[in-house]
Amino acid sequence: MTNITKENFDKAKNFYNFDTLYAPVLPGLKATVMKHQDAITDAFYKELANDEIAAKIVAGRVDQLKATHKVWMEELFNGEYGEAYFNRRYKIGETHVKAKIAPYFVEVITSSLRRSFAQILVAEGAVAVQAALAILDLDAMIIIGAYHEDRMHRMSDVTGMNLNLLETLMSFG
């Protein structure tokens, strides 16, 4: 792993003022979200089952994946969003990359989760919804970062270019 995804995670947290505005709110929302955990997880995997490609990826492992999804969801609301949190989320991204799950699925499923969380938390107020959406955005950013870094490593392997040089070239747009 390069430091780009971690740097972006830290920058995004600062940009959102996440640690001050949202991190303190999330643990207080955990009980509300966990009451709906099974329904959210079931809907999540039902959506995946409706897609031909995604259904093949999860086939035969849905129960195991549902258990993992529940742990992931609980961790969203634990209140700790530092180095250990980042590393766990990055590892999820690496797992998705190794399983050859298209980043598209991360993006559309995150969008689905955003709607589910907003619907559940709307009664808790705007800050509750904003906090849940912020942590989902950060999670998606970390997971997608793992895809970016994998592509950069593969590009480096193919071209022989140094990763820092590739990142610099990519920054020119």
Rank of each mutant, 00 (worst) to 15 (best):
M170I: 13
A99Y: 12
A59I: 14
R114C: 07
A59K: 15
A102Q: 07
L163D: 11
Y45H: 01
Q64W: 04
Y147G: 04
A59S: 10
I4L: 13
D10V: 15
R154Q: 12
L121N: 02
L121M: 04
G79F: 00
A39C: 00
S171C: 09
Y16C: 04
M34H: 02
L163H: 07
K56C: 06
L169P: 12
M161Y: 14
M73W: 04
Y22N: 03
M141R: 08
E149R: 03
N3C: 07
I120N: 00
L29E: 00
E107S: 14
E7V: 11
A131Q: 10
D63Q: 13
K91D: 10
A126M: 12
K6C: 04
R154H: 07
E75D: 10
N78P: 10
D38F: 06
K13H: 08
T110Y: 06
Y90L: 02
A99D: 06
M152V: 15
V62S: 05
K91L: 11
N87L: 11
L133K: 06
A140H: 01
F77I: 00
V158M: 07
H36D: 03
D51H: 12
A102C: 09
D51G: 12
K30V: 00
L76A: 05
A54L: 05
Y22I: 08
F117E: 04
A43M: 03
G82W: 01
M1R: 05
A55R: 12
G79K: 00
A39L: 02
P24L: 01
M170A: 11
Y16L: 14
Y104N: 09
G173T: 14
E83C: 02
K56S: 14
V62R: 07
K11D: 11
Y85G: 02
G125V: 05
A54M: 11
V106R: 08
R114M: 10
V106N: 14
H148P: 08
T168G: 14
V58N: 08
L21Y: 09
V129C: 00
P103H: 03
V97C: 11
G93V: 06
T68Q: 05
M73Y: 06
R88F: 05
L166G: 10
I101D: 02
A54Y: 07
G60V: 13
Q130A: 09
Y16E: 03
P27W: 01
G82F: 01
R151V: 14
